[in-house]
Design a binder for these strands. Structure first.
Length: 424
RNA sequence: GGAGAUGUGGCAGAGUGGUCUAUUGCGUCUGAUUCGAAAUCAGAAGUCCGCGAAAGCGGUCCGGGGGUUCGACUCCCUCCAUCUCCGCCA
């Protein structure tokens, strides 16, 4: 959520920011609602002030044993009027809030202008390029080695719910553990294991709701949602809190399963692991002082990159353009790995600085120099496993048809160096 | 899941319809005293919203929401959380 003061003090800043994003918001209506609302508020406060005086008068009379009936009759009308004005105010306030929750964040000045992913800027490309014969597609390769079972997953849940089998399951677990261990032993994160069901307030807090309701799985009877990312529970852990400034920055890392309906986003480029309803991800979340978020953002990107380097993958870092950034982001970097069979770059991480956008929604503050103010929140995948797996499967095929396990994962695979080809 | 109880400021803990501007204690901050500290004494302090150039003024907040009333911390409804007992269960 944007600072509500901006709507009356610097509407041009909002207008320009949204324009750069290509976002359409009926700002005129919002400005008018705000003006109307404040007008009613002034009237309401006056009325309440009068009522306070009147009831005090009645109290005094009662105390001294006088008959206050006449005053009570008169004050009744005041109460009725307050009710009318209060309803009006609540209606205006509700309408303004409902609209405010749908306004995306304003991009930082440094964000490149653009409309689509084609306008994103490649900041750097790194890692060893794949060289050798064109490898097998990861789905065919996985099937040969018996690592995953999409068909049976579809049978019990639907398409987009793969089953990890045998060494495929162990490889998944290895990736998760490797990611987490890196964060908690080298990058200074506290490991968290949060609930994967959250309430509506949490989903609003990080910005998934109300705009993206159709992307979420719901548990209707209980009013709960399956988390689309650990960002939701981790960030909302501190909702409605004033964080001790000395405790900042707070850095959490968590592995959770992530659930996404991915409504309407299926197509030929989403085969196999590239788009799933259920997948595994390790997420990094940070809370910082406002002045420190930019620095923290760069570091988060570095942590995610470090994992790709250790896995010996070929990757690049994109600076997202204004039109391609997520709803709540003020600035965002994507990390993509190259899949040599598909000959495509695949997004494995998105690292965003939300500034105070989420902190306002979730009401997360700190006290700095005597002033209570909103913190900045950031998060980034570190990493999501499925597309990392795609790149690994396509890159690490041996001449004999086996899978070469990256060195850093070998300790997590019981020392195994290779998943051998299945015997005929 | 059933029965009962509780929810008040940073913490503890009073308050059962109007002297609540929320008693009191602890803690915090600022002074005084001291070489400095402790102790003691005096004083101060919260949130959010609005109006205002400012000083300041008004409103709001006792778990959340709603209701009754001229007036609600107090009465009613509802939701949430915690505790105790019972039941069930990895």
């Amino acid at each position: 959520m944007l600072d509500p003061r901006l709507y009356r003090e610097d509407i041009d800043r909002i207008r320009q920011g949204l324009e750069r994003r290509g976002a359409k918001v009926d700002l005129d209506t919002m400005v008018n609602l705000d003006i109307e609302k404040r007008k009613i508020n002034v009237r309401l406060d006056q009325l309440k002030s009068e009522r306070n005086a009147a009831t005090e008068k009645i109290a005094q009379m009662k105390r001294s044993g006088q008959d206050a009936q006449e005053h009570i009759e008169k004050t009744r009308a005041l109460g009725d009027e307050i009710k009318v004005q209060q309803d009006k105010f609540n209606d205006l306030e509700g309408r303004f809030q409902a609209m405010a929750l749908l306004v995306p964040n304003l991009p930082q000045a440094s964000v490149p202008d653009g409309r689509t992913s084609a306008d994103n800027v490649v900041r750097r490309e790194s890692g060893r390029k794949y060289e050798g014969p064109k490898p097998k597609h990861h789905l065919d390769f996985s099937r040969e080695l018996g690592l995953h079972d999409f068909e049976r997953g579809a049978k019990i849940a639907g398409s987009g719910f793969p089953i990890y089998v045998g060494l495929g399951a162990r490889l998944e677990r290895a990736l998760i553990n490797f990611f987490l261990d890196e964060h908690i032993t080298h990058n200074g994160f506290t490991e968290i294991q949060p609930p994967v069901l959250v309430n509506q307030a949490a989903m609003i807090g990080t910005g998934q709701l109300p705009k993206f309701a159709e992307d979420m799985y719901t548990i209707g009877d209980d009013g709960l949602y399956l988390v689309p990312t650990a960002e939701v529970p981790l960030t909302n852990m501190h909702s409605n809190e004033v964080l001790d400034a000395a405790s900042l920055p707070i850095a959490y890392a968590a592995y959770t399963t992530c659930f996404r309906r991915e409504a309407g986003s299926w197509g030929k480029e989403t085969r196999g692991f590239q788009r799933l309803h259920q997948f595994d991800k390790v997420e990094m979340v940070q809370f910082t002082e406002p002045s420190k978020s930019e620095e923290a953002h760069q570091k988060l990107v570095g942590y995610a990159e470090g994992l790709l380097q250790k896995l010996d993958l070929h990757y690049r870092v994109l600076e997202l353009c204004t039109g391609d950034m997520g709803f709540g982001a003020a600035k965002c970097y994507d990390l993509e790995v190259f899949a040599p069979a598909e000959e495509r770059w695949l997004e494995v991480s998105s690292v965003s600085n939300f500034e105070d956008f989420q902190a306002r929604r979730a009401n997360i503050r700190t006290k700095l120099e005597g002033k209570t103010q909103f913190v900045h929140t950031l998060n980034g995948s570190g990493l999501a496993t499925p597309r990392v797996l795609v790149a690994l499967l396509e890159r690490n095929q041996t001449a004999e048809g086996g899978f070469r396990i990256p060195e850093v994962l070998q300790p997590y695979m019981g020392g195994l160096k290779e998943i051998p080809p299945k015997k005929k």
